[in-house]
Design a protein around this nucleic acid. Structure first.
Lengths: 237, 237
DNA sequence: TCCTATAATATCGTATACGAAATAGGGGAC
DNA sequence: GTCCCCTATTTCGTATACGATATTATAGGA
């Protein structure tokens, strides 16, 4: 624990919170800490080699982000996954990306458009080659690029937080849902609106696209969604 | 400090955090703690009669909400007000309420429509009587009702957090900007779309309305906006 | 007079300690 | 055999303590 930089020269003064928070967050997102898992403070402290003070600050932040649920006197739990909650978050995502798309359309920044078109070509290429992995990565970049290009910190933050919740169910949906050609057509509509500077068009087409994705993803529940309960353990039934 | 409920009967077990967080948040929103104010932990602890442990948890939450800015080793500061940041947040607000309006339009719940129309009449009445106070209150209810009626927890949360930032500049804008007749016309368009079940129409008209409000509010900076700095003290210049 | 370096002070980050509530386990009554 | 109650242990909420860093004040020199 005492192995922080002894030289306070360049990059010293890193609160343990900043070390611990991403670790916990990543563990929750990638299901190392599965939904419903009880988070014993002493256990985590021992595992991470820190005291409870910075850990509790991290838990409070995760609670604010919705990744952890805390009950007074009882403790912290990795927020269980609930389809209604996810539906709400996808809706929120639609609003966030719609605003971003509208802004990008309003700007018509050539560099941004160039980048989006390049990603579009990557998606087409991946689609032709049947490379699902590449396709999904490019798809992520497509959305991420638009949100970043909007240049709105508040939207970007809300988007990031929302995506953490989406990522948490990715492992179950990525392979399950072949959201290929429809998505490509939607993307074309969005891109066309952006290039044309059609603000309302970009706004509406992005919302519609994400609502379709939401229906596609949430309309097909996958085993394991409800988190670690005893009666749907892997291999059971 | 030892005056918590001795009877653990009904509503015991209230962490100090839950007591302190709203107090600090309200103080920031209503400018009892003005933008830029340094938040000395020991001072606040003494004033509130608590120890630093729950206070720091509250500060971390406020930091996540964007109301407080913390620098490692330096401490907490009430986040200064910045027009670009506010612009971003108004944009976010537009996306959130647009999604809410779209959902409300999709539902066409009679009770919700009835309520919205009632608020609309209140606004007209207040407008005729020139009662600015009543008008603004009804206006708040109009937006709040739509967001709540959407029934989306994620959107509601994001909206609440965003509104805290908006409230913080209310005192400066409420009296300064006569957003009367234009807003009324916008509201009519939104209501019409909701009643007609026109999802896209509600989505777009709500966004447009809030962008106009944003331009109106942020296009006219008011003294005091940049918070407590020495060189723009009241009466100066 | 202004700048710099050094020392004193205040404040932060983290660890630990303590009281209280919740949970778990065992024994007894029905 | 089942249910309930009581006790023991764990875990949480909060306070306090300590080392380290940032800030401020002070004194010296240019």
């Amino acid at each position: 624990m005492r192995d922080r930089q002894d030289k306070p020269g360049v990059a010293a003064r890193r609160p343990l919170l900043e070390l611990v928070l991403p670790v916990l967050r990543d563990a929750i997102i990638n299901r190392t800490l599965p939904p419903g898992e009880r988070l014993s403070e002493s256990d985590i402290c021992a595992r991470l080699g820190i005291s409870r003070t910075p850990l509790r600050e991290a838990l409070r932040i995760l609670e604010t982000e919705g990744l952890v649920t805390m009950a007074a006197g009882v403790g912290a739990v990795v927020t269980p996954i609930s389809p209604p909650d996810l539906h709400d978050r996808f809706d929120l995502l639609a609003g966030l990306e719609a605003i971003a798309a509208a802004r990008v359309a309003g700007r018509r920044d050539p560099e941004t458009i160039r980048r989006i078109l390049a990603i579009q070509r990557e998606m087409e290429s991946a689609s032709r080659q049947g490379s699902r992995e590449e396709y999904y990565k490019a798809n992520d970049r497509f959305h991420q690029t638009i949100v970043e290009a909007a240049g709105n910190e508040a939207v970007l933050n809300a988007h990031r937080t929302t995506m953490w919740h989406v990522y948490r169910i990715r492992h179950a949906t990525n392979t399950a849902n072949p959201l290929g050609p429809e998505a490509a057509r939607h993307h074309e509509a969005i891109i066309a609106a952006v290039i044309a500077g059609d603000v309302d068009g970009a706004f509406v087409s992005m919302r519609r696209h994400l609502e379709d994705v939401s229906d596609l993803v949430l309309g097909r529940p996958v085993a394991g969604w409800f988190g670690a309960t005893d009666h749907d353990a892997p291999g059971a039934g």
